[in-house]
């Protein structure tokens, strides 16, 4: 792509001198733009940003995430979403507004250790994230294999308009449920799962490289692919 400059940067490193729009993971100090993370800096169309290679997942409203029930009280389940914040799934959002702890049994719906596909329903600087399981494709996940990658590498695993997911799914005969928080559930035949896990690891390791799609296709073409 013309007019795009890229370089590897570390926190505090000067990316560019001059007036630019500030994208993600950069800050400006007197017309100088610096990185705040280890990552790949991109300067294009008057904007500077850094694609980070490490870091914890910070929830955003409407994100699709995979979560693990770790505890529950009379009014909510506690959900580990691999973030710096614990999320909560309110009982009311599952049972309805007339939920009553005396009548409804929370354990009938979700137990400690259950995985759920959920959406971030609410979150801001002042309170812990709330998740919801109402909606198509959301709710209990009761089969498959779970794997975790760095959440910063999720866009790469999804690919442009889902192209990478499609490549992996077609090559392994599995279905991938990818949370923005870096948790992924792989469903399919056992050999397919093993191949999919291997491919996901490759994508995580090589996320910053250019010819990733070719590498993934080469791996999927090896024997063992479904």
């Amino acid at each position: 792509m013309p007019g795009v400059t890229r370089k590897y940067v570390v926190p505090g490193e000067l990316i560019v001198d001059g007036k630019y729009r500030l994208g993600a993971n950069v800050y400006a100090n007197q017309d100088k733009v610096y990185s705040t993370r280890v990552g790949l800096a991109e300067i294009s169309r008057g904007e500077v940003r850094v694609i980070p290679l490490s870091g914890v997942y910070i929830p955003r409203v409407d994100d699709f995430v995979i979560g693990k029930i770790t505890d529950y009280s009379a009014f909510a389940w506690e959900v580990d979403i691999a973030s710096c914040f614990l999320a909560f799934l309110p009982a009311q959002s599952v049972f309805g507004r007339d939920y009553s702890p005396a009548q409804d049994s929370m354990l009938d719906r979700f137990k400690v250790g259950d995985l759920i596909a959920a959406k971030i329903a609410a979150f801001d600087r002042t309170r812990d994230p709330l998740v919801s399981v109402s909606g198509p494709g959301l709710g209990l996940i009761n089969k498959g294999e779970i794997v975790k990658i760095m959440s910063t590498k999720v866009p790469r695993l999804i690919g442009k308009k889902g192209s990478m997911i499609k490549t992996v799914e077609a090559g392994t005969g599995c279905r991938l449920s990818i949370g923005q928080n870096g948790l992924i559930v792989v469903m399919g035949p056992p050999e397919g799962i093993a191949k999919a896990l291997e491919t996901i690891r490759l994508i995580e390791q090589e996320a910053h490289t250019a010819d990733l799609t070719q590498k993934v296709e080469a791996l999927l073409a090896e024997s063992g692919g479904a």
Binding site: K68, I69, T70, K111, V112, G113, D114, L115, N142, I146
Partner: peptide, 11 residues
């Protein structure tokens, strides 16, 4: 440590 139910089943 809470182990995922699906991992328990697989194990």
């Amino acid at each position: 440590i809470v182990v995922e139910q699906i991992r328990k089943t697989r194990m």
